[in-house]
């Protein structure tokens, strides 16, 4: 896992082609980097080196399959807390300590901590919510999705 820059990073034209062209569709062929490189006008070794550099620089957080835990019998649930400012760091540490917390963001609102719980079973979500409430003394607002209208997280470099 590379660094996680918060400022924009300089990318050359080939890096941009890789980021824009490879956010999905990585081939399941014998030499997938060779096939993907061909489509991007690169050599296999150049694509591999550039992906490694993009990961090392933190431009990419990962290169691989994106799994959908719901299709494996598990669940993702968005949840939020209203955390007193004086307790923010303590509560962030308590929430982040749970392995079920996949992402956690500070957002500017009365509900100022928003996180995604991922568990292999729906019961695991309930246990994680209970653990967070017990550790923090705060009430968790859970926002399970009722309908998914669209998901496709692709960003242009």
């Amino acid at each position: 896992m590379g660094r996680r820059p918060v400022e924009p990073v300089d990318l050359d034209e080939a890096d941009r082609r890789i980021i824009n062209g490879l956010q999905g569709g990585f081939p399941l062929s014998e030499r997938p980097y060779a096939e993907a490189a061909g489509a991007l006008g690169l050599e296999e070794s150049e694509l591999i080196d550039r992906l490694q550099a993009l990961l090392d620089r933190g431009v990419l957080t990962r290169f691989g399959p994106m799994y959908q835990i719901e299709r494996m019998g598990g669940a993702f649930v968005l949840a939020a807390l209203s955390v007193p400012e004086a307790d923010y760091e303590r509560v962030a540490g308590q929430v982040n300590a749970l392995p079920e917390v996949a992402h956690n963001y500070r957002r500017e609102h009365a509900l100022n901590m928003w996180f995604v719980l991922a568990a292999e079973t729906p019961a695991g979500i309930g246990r994680a919510v209970a653990a967070i409430e017990a550790a923090t003394g705060l009430s968790v607002f859970a926002f399970p999705k009722e309908r998914e209208y669209f998901v496709e997280m692709k960003l242009r470099a």
């Binding site: 996680r4 820059p5 918060v6 400022e7 924009p8 990073v9 990318l11 890789i18 980021i19 490879l22 956010q23 999905g24 569709g25 990585f26 399941l28 992906l51 993009l54 620089r57 933190g58 431009v59 990419l60 957080t61 990962r62 290169f63 691989g64 399959p65 994106m66 799994y67 959908q68 299709r71 494996m72 998901v151 960003l155 242009r156 470099a157």
Partner: peptide
Amino acid sequence: RGVIRRIGAVPNHYAL
């Protein structure tokens, strides 16, 4: 079966 949404690069928003 949709267990994998896609296979590829996951960018860091802030870096882009």
